[in-house]
């Protein structure tokens, strides 16, 4: 594989308009060289903005980097260009699985199966989404196209000793990657990944908003839900802390819990810098 990467890199250098960037980006992604793969895909996409495979490749790399929102946009774009693009249909199905929307995931897999009836990966994922083969619909395995991403780092230790460390505290990096803690919904289901995916980019968005208003740095975001309360805080400029509690916990108390958790997170981030 290293030889092939070298050969393809050389070909691409000689002919920057060549489509070998697709193969090169995919090889680099498989090798886990995500930053290099990202650069190759982005450069290729700039030269071939109407090529659905380029959007598909870029989306896979973004998904591997846990940048699910942008991955969704890229797969969506691939489908706008080529509505039958199997890779994009599978990719979107994966993202829908990830947020627990099994119905949408199955719909995309069904569309993929109509285009590629012999694809065993699609058939397998679809069977699991439908609850066949002993798997429950909500616990289906991720579909084939995306390589497993890096595992969360020593997640249990970030909030060691803090109340709710494994069901109501979450530490994320800027791209929504889980650094520590875990989250469960009121029914006890693990919703860590789904919530993390939606929170990717929130820290930057909050920072942009307060900058626009000339309010200095953002220090927290408290939200009152119909069934519970949420508090977000930035323990560092590129990390996000989430605290979730039911409505019985007053917002003020939640802010105190968040302060303690943010302190623990800050120490942990500094120790792991």
């Amino acid at each position: 594989m290293p030889d092939e990467i070298k050969t393809l890199s050389s070909q691409l250098a000689q002919d920057p308009d060549s489509l070998v960037f697709l193969r090169l980006g995919e090889l680099l992604r498989h090798k886990g060289q995500l930053d290099t793969a990202h650069r190759v895909a982005l450069t290729g996409l700039e030269r071939h903005p109407h090529l659905p495979d380029a959007h598909d490749l870029y989306a896979r790399i973004l998904a591997d980097k846990h940048d699910y929102e942008r991955a969704f946009d890229e797969w969506d774009m691939a489908l706008r260009i080529a509505p039958d693009h199997v890779g994009a249909l599978k990719g979107l199905a994966f993202l829908y699985f990830k947020v627990g929307d099994v119905q949408q995931a199955a719909a995309h897999l069904e569309a993929a199966q109509r285009v590629a009836p012999d694809d065993p990966g699609v058939a397998q994922a679809l069977a699991m989404a439908r609850g066949e083969g002993g798997a429950e619909a909500g616990t289906v395995a991720e579909p084939q196209p995306i390589a497993p991403a890096a595992q969360p780092m020593e997640e249990a230790r970030v909030f060691a000793g803090l109340e709710g460390a494994q069901e109501g505290l979450l530490l994320l990096d800027a791209s929504g990657r889980v650094l520590g803690g875990a989250l469960k919904d009121p029914a006890g289901r693990d919703v860590t990944d789904a919530v993390a995916a939606y929170l990717a980019g929130v820290s930057q968005e909050a920072a942009r908003t307060v900058k626009l208003l000339g309010l200095g740095k953002w220090t927290g975001l408290a939200a009152e839900g119909k069934l519970g309360h949420v508090h977000l805080a930035p323990p560092s400029s590129d990390a996000l802390l989430l605290v979730v509690r039911d409505r019985a916990v007053p917002m003020g108390r939640l802010a105190i819990i968040a302060q303690r958790a943010a302190l623990a997170a800050r120490r942990w981030l500094e120790a792991h810098a």
């Binding site: 947020v99 627990g100 989250l183 919904d185 009121p186 029914a187 289901r189 919703v191 789904a194 919530v195 939606y198 929170l199 980019g201 929130v202 968005e205 909050a206 908003t209 307060v210 208003l213 000339g214 309010l215 200095g216 740095k217 953002w218 220090t219 927290g220 975001l221 408290a222 939200a223 009152e224 839900g225 119909k226 069934l227 519970g228 309360h229 949420v230 989430l242 979730v244 039911d246």
Partner: peptide, 23 residues
Amino acid sequence: RLRRAMEAAGVGASVFWHLQAEQ
């Protein structure tokens, strides 16, 4: 983003939110 995250977390739709900053 907040609505989606809160719904995924099972705390329901947001009723009120408050973005706090230094100033």
